[in-house]
Amino acid sequence: MSKIRVFSDSTCDLPPELREQHQIGIIPLYVTFGEDAYKDGVEMTPLQLFHKVDELGYLPKTASPSPGDFIQAFAPAIEAGDDIIFIGLSTELSSTCQNAIIAADSFPEGRITVVDSRNLSTGIGLLVLKAVRAAEAGRTLQEIEQIVLDSRDRIETEFIIDTLDYLHKGGRCSSLQNFIGSLLKIRPVVKVVDGRMILAAKLRGKREKTLEQLIQNALHFKDQLEGETISVTHALAEEEAIQVREILLRETNAKEVLLAETGCVISSHCGPHTVGIVLSRNGS
């Protein structure tokens, strides 16, 4: 009997055990230092990436999987008689979904559905989990697609970046802004709005204070939470992420608060010691 397989790309940042449990197919993006390209999460880990940035003094470039990468990943599922829904990194940030669409055209019509998440990191991951649960409940490909489309604008994704260094290396702030920001201990708050990353605020002060602000921003939605899952996502900040997770478990009705680590692509943009909270709110 055919089934529906859910695929995503490596920027969904779902923990490996969830990927295995639900047989979620992952197509990695690439990080490139000079002439050397590495598959995100396959050939390079975030810790290795941070070490390499420290060593070389510059950030890697990132690249989408090619249509050929998608064809290679999709083919076994299609040959097994399964249909596929792919949920990928926002088209405002990457050509990943466009390349997935090109690949889908190589297979019989209607077998592969591609959905732009309009999000990143576990903002994608929460949509992937919604799709998986719907597939496991026996919903059709069209029904699953509609569930994801109805949910994607209700995903709240917010990160606090610990240092301006990576924004500076990535050309997103000047040397002067980086210098002044470091002196004043300014930590940017990045949100995802309309599929794009925006600078929502600049918090000044001790790290504990800024993390408390992140938590309060999430708790603003605690009466509007949809579904069972919240994600606390971090880059090399596991201890603090665990503390944030415990607070959210205590202060919300969420049945599950995931602890997730950003992959290489997301880490290369946000830098180490970043902490984020991702949740899905209802339509009210």
Score class of each variant (00 low, 15 high):
D69S: 06
S175K: 12
N178F: 12
I84K: 13
E79C: 07
F107L: 08
R172E: 03
I161S: 05
L120Q: 11
L47C: 04
D54L: 08
F70S: 07
V189E: 01
V31F: 05
A73R: 12
D54V: 05
P108K: 12
V53A: 11
V190T: 00
K255M: 06
A137C: 02
S231P: 11
G41E: 06
E20C: 11
P60A: 05
L47D: 14
S231K: 12
L120M: 15
L203P: 06
Q72G: 07
V114Y: 00
G138L: 09
Q177H: 12
D165P: 05
K185F: 14
S94Y: 02
I230N: 12
E35M: 07
A37V: 09
L93A: 03
A37R: 15
P76R: 11
E136V: 02
R118C: 15
G25Q: 08
G181Y: 14
S280T: 12
D162E: 13
E239I: 15
R172Y: 03
G181W: 13
L93M: 13
S284G: 01
S8I: 05
K206P: 12
A254V: 08
V278A: 07
I147G: 08
L203V: 02
F107Q: 14
E261D: 06
V128N: 08
R245I: 00
R19L: 15
E143A: 11
R196C: 09
C264N: 09
V128M: 07
F221A: 00
D69V: 03
V148W: 03
V232M: 12
L126V: 12
L59S: 10
M197V: 06
L93C: 09
D116T: 04
D69H: 04
D69M: 04
I124M: 13
T113M: 14
Y30C: 03
L176V: 15
L167V: 01
F50D: 06
K130A: 13
V232C: 13
E136P: 02
I87V: 13
S121F: 03
T32F: 01
G110D: 14
G276W: 10
L127R: 09
G227S: 01
L29R: 08
E261N: 07
C270I: 11
E261H: 06
L258A: 10
S64G: 06
N253L: 04
L219V: 09
F159N: 13
Q243Y: 00
I24M: 14
K206G: 14
I24K: 09
L59I: 06
I24D: 13
S94M: 03
I180C: 09
